[in-house]
C-alpha cells in the first residue's frame, strides 16, 4: 500500500508539472507581447520594449519557464502586471474566502446528496425516486448563471430574505458573514447535489442487487441492519471519489457565483485578472485551483484505499 501511495504521489507531481506547462503556454506564449497588451496599440514601441524588459518577457521561453517554475517551487508565484507586486497575498486572501464559501456548500450538500441518493435507491422506480433523480439531474445541469439569477430574483429581490452581495464588509461578525454566504452557496449546492445523489444512488442500487445483499437478507437480518451493515458500507465507497472530483467543478462554479454575487474569492480574482489581462495573476490562480483539486483527489484516494479491504490488503492465496 505504501508503494501505491508513493506511486500515486509521483503521478500527481507529474500531472502538476504538465499542468504548469499548459498554464505557462496559455499565459505566456499564446498572448504574444505582454508589454503591448498592457500598454495598448497606441504606445510607443520603445516603451513597450522597456516594459517587456522589466517584466522579463524578452528572455527566451525556456529561461522564462524555468525561472517561473523555480519561483513556484519556492512559493513565489510571480509579479502581478496590474499591481506590480507579488501575487501570493492576493491568491492567499482570495483562496481563504473561496474556501469559506465552498465549505458551506459542502457541509450542506454532502449529507443531503448521500441521503437523497440512498433514499432514491431504496425506493427505486417509485415516485420518490423519480422526484429525487429528476430534481438532481435538472439541478446539476442548470448552469450557475441561471440558478444564480433565479435565486437572486426570488430571494434577494422579491422576498428580500437574504443580502444579494456575498461580502459582509470588513469587520462583520461571523454570523452576518454566514448570512451573506447563504445565497451564493445555493447554486453550488444545486450543481453538486445531482452528482453526489446520482453516485450514491447507483452504488446503493448495485449493492442492493448483489448476491451478498441476498445472503444478508436470507440470513434473516432486519432490513435496516442489512442496509446499514451490508449495503451502505459498500455503496458509499465510490461516492468518496466523486465528492473529491466535484471540488474541481465547484471551483469552476465559483468563477460565476463570485462574479454574480460580487464576492472576493479565487474565482472573482481569476475573472478580474482575465479581464485586465494580468497573466501572472491568472496563471497563479489557475494553478492554485489545480493544486487544490489534486490534493482533494489524493486525500480521496487515500481514504478509498484505507476503507477498501481489497486495496488495503491486496489478495493473498
Amino acid at each position: 500500500m505504501a508503494t501505491y501511495l508513493l506511486r500515486r504521489l509521483g503521478l500527481a507531481v507529474i500531472t502538476l508539472w504538465l499542468l504548469s506547462m499548459i498554464v505557462f503556454f496559455a499565459g505566456q506564449v499564446l498572448p504574444g507581447d505582454p508589454g503591448r497588451a498592457i500598454l495598448g496599440p497606441l504606445a510607443a514601441q520603445s516603451s513597450v520594449r522597456v516594459l517587456d524588459q522589466q517584466l522579463g518577457v524578452d528572455r527566451p521561453l525556456v529561461t522564462q519557464y524555468w525561472s517561473w517554475v523555480s519561483g513556484l517551487v519556492h512559493g513565489n508565484m510571480g509579479q502581478s502586471y496590474e499591481f506590480r507586486s507579488p501575487v501570493e497575498p492576493f491568491i492567499h486572501a482570495a483562496l481563504l474566502n473561496s474556501v469559506k464559501l465552498a465549505a458551506l456548500a459542502f457541509i450542506v450538500v454532502v449529507p443531503l446528496g448521500i441521503l437523497g441518493g440512498v433514499i432514491a435507491a431504496l425506493n427505486v422506480g417509485r415516485p420518490i425516486d423519480r422526484v429525487i433523480s429528476i430534481t438532481g439531474l435538472s439541478a446539476t445541469t442548470v448552469s450557475e448563471v441561471v440558478s444564480g439569477v433565479i435565486i437572486i430574483v426570488i430571494f434577494g429581490v422579491e422576498l428580500k430574505w437574504f443580502p444579494v452581495s456575498a461580502s459582509a464588509g470588513t469587520g462583520a461578525s461571523d454570523l452576518s458573514q454566514l448570512d451573506h454566504l447563504i445565497l451564493p452557496a445555493i447554486p453550488l449546492v444545486l450543481v453538486l447535489f445531482g452528482y453526489i445523489a446520482r453516485m450514491a444512488r447507483a452504488g446503493t442500487i448495485e449493492a442492493l442487487e448483489s448476491d451478498y445483499a441476498r445472503t444478508a437478507t436470507l440470513k434473516g437480518l432486519k432490513r435496516s441492519v442489512v442496509i446499514r451493515r451490508h449495503i451502505l458500507r459498500n455503496s458509499l465507497l465510490p461516492t468518496i471519489t466523486v465528492i473529491a472530483t466535484q471540488t474541481g467543478y465547484l471551483f469552476g462554479g465559483l468563477v460565476i457565483v463570485e462574479t454574480l454575487f460580487n464576492y472576493q474569492g479565487i474565482g472573482k480574482l481569476i475573472y478580474t485578472a482575465a479581464s485586465g489581462k494580468d497573466f501572472p495573476m491568472l496563471e497563479a490562480g489557475v494553478l492554485t485551483i489545480g493544486i487544490v483539486y489534486m490534493v482533494a483527489t489524493l486525500i480521496a484516494d487515500v481514504l478509498y484505499t484505507l476503507l477498501n479491504p481489497r486495496l488495503r490488503l491486496g489478495s493473498t492465496g
Partner: peptide, 23 residues
C-alpha cells in the same frame, strides 16, 4: 493519459477562460 489528468485538474470554464483571454 497524463495530459487528461492535468486538464481534468482545472475546471473547464477556468481553462477556457485562460485560453480565450490569451488568444
Amino acid at each position: 493519459s497524463r495530459i487528461v489528468e492535468a486538464v481534468l485538474a482545472v475546471p473547464l470554464i477556468i481553462l477556457a477562460l485562460l485560453f480565450v483571454t490569451a488568444l
